[in-house]
Design a protein around this nucleic acid. Sequence first.
DNA 1: GCCAACGTTGGC
DNA 2: GCCAACGTTGGC
Length: 151
Amino acid sequence: MRYWLYKSEPGVYGIDHLERDGTTIWDGVRNYMARINLNAAAVGDLIFFYHSSANPPGVAGLAEVVETSVVDPLQFDPESKYFDPTSKPAEPRWITVRVKFVEKFPNFLPLDLLRRSFTPEELVTLRKGNRLSVTPVGDTTADRLLAMARA
DNA sequence: GCCAACGTTGGC
DNA sequence: GCCAACGTTGGC
């Protein structure tokens, strides 16, 4: 079982939306490096749900991968901003995962606390210039994040 | 709203 | 295959 950090803007889709919905397809990722990380996810992996472009930004809760190799439906939806006219239904370009709500953390972990608690090596999101929306989180870092979020 | 960082596109 | 222009992300 591995840990990941997924970013989403809470105004668009945040931890409260996931709690309401129960599960959701993690759609709209259109970055090849993020896609590699999405494809590497396995059922049972745990996801730190990060609120980006928020005030404050930070880690809000936990989700779990419940299905892999999910075809992102928005790539075939001409009305969607994530429509990809070069992707063919026979060989979809954008594959993602379905995740389920696990918990909203008792303690929201704001970005400034993350900066004070972890090095950029320990947490990819803290690395200068990193904007990747799907990144791996090491076990040790994950354990510390969980301890801080639930204490 | 600004802007740094960096991914993507397209002309050559 | 190079690289300038452009677009996007995301913190502030």
